Amino acid sequence: MFGLGWTEVIVVIVVALLIFGPKKIPEIGSVFGKTLREFKDSINASDDEYSNDKS
């Protein structure tokens, strides 16, 4: 996982909790998930367009 060990992951989570607070973390995760989903959809759409143009 990006060359991070479990200790580093725990430190990152603790720092995120300190910076954003426990109430903001789910909101940030939701926005991040939506962004990734839209990114994947746009990549799949461009792949579909490429394959349609090629044939």
Rank of each mutant, 00 (worst) to 15 (best):
Met1Ile: 06
Met1His: 04
Met1Ala: 13
Met1Trp: 02
Met1Val: 08
Phe2Leu: 12
Phe2Arg: 08
Phe2Val: 07
Gly3Trp: 01
Leu4Glu: 05
Gly5Pro: 01
Gly5His: 03
Trp6Ala: 06
Thr7Phe: 02
Thr7Cys: 01
Thr7Val: 04
Thr7Asn: 04
Val9Gly: 03
Val9Met: 11
Val9Ser: 06
Val9Leu: 07
Val9Ala: 07
Ile10Phe: 14
Ile10Gly: 09
Ile10Ser: 12
Ile10Arg: 09
Ile10Leu: 12
Ile10Met: 09
Val11Tyr: 05
Val11Trp: 03
Val12Ser: 04
Val12Arg: 11
Ile13Asn: 13
Ile13Gly: 07
Val14Trp: 06
Val14Leu: 11
Ala16Met: 04
Ala16Cys: 08
Leu17Thr: 02
Leu17Met: 13
Leu17Asp: 03
Ile19Ala: 00
Ile19Asp: 01
Ile19Met: 01
Ile19Lys: 00
Phe20Thr: 06
Phe20Val: 11
Phe20Leu: 12
Phe20Lys: 09
Phe20Tyr: 15
Phe20Asn: 10
Phe20Ser: 13
Gly21Cys: 02
Gly21Ala: 02
Gly21Ile: 01
Pro22Val: 14
Pro22Gly: 11
Pro22Lys: 15
Lys23Ile: 00
Lys24Arg: 14
Lys24Glu: 04
Lys24Val: 02
Ile25Phe: 00
Pro26Ala: 09
Pro26Trp: 05
Pro26Ser: 13
Pro26Leu: 10
Glu27His: 11
Glu27Ala: 12
Ile28Asn: 00
Ile28Leu: 06
Gly29Thr: 15
Gly29Glu: 12
Ser30Thr: 12
Ser30Phe: 03
Ser30Asn: 14
Val31Ile: 12
Val31Ala: 15
Phe32Thr: 14
Gly33Pro: 00
Gly33Trp: 01
Lys34Val: 13
Lys34Trp: 15
Lys34Gln: 15
Thr35Cys: 06
Thr35Gln: 05
Leu36Met: 15
Leu36Asn: 06
Leu36Glu: 11
Leu36Ile: 14
Leu36Tyr: 03
Arg37Val: 13
Arg37Gly: 11
Arg37Tyr: 11
Glu38Met: 14
Glu38Leu: 12
Phe39Lys: 08
Phe39Asp: 02
Lys40Cys: 08
Lys40Met: 14
Asp41Cys: 03
Ser42Ile: 07
Ser42Val: 07
Ser42Arg: 10
Ile43Arg: 06
Ile43Gly: 01
Ile43Leu: 10
Ile43Cys: 04
Asn44Val: 05
Asn44Glu: 13
Asn44Phe: 10
Asn44Leu: 15
Asn44Thr: 12
Ala45Asn: 08
Ala45His: 05
Ser46Glu: 15
Ser46Phe: 11
Asp47Val: 05
Asp47Cys: 05
Asp47Thr: 03
Asp48Arg: 05
Asp48Ser: 10
Asp48Tyr: 02
Glu49His: 13
Tyr50Asp: 12
Tyr50Lys: 14
Ser51Lys: 10
Ser51Met: 10
Asn52Trp: 12
Asp53Asn: 13
Asp53His: 11
Asp53Ser: 13
Lys54Asn: 07
Lys54Glu: 09
Ser55Trp: 14
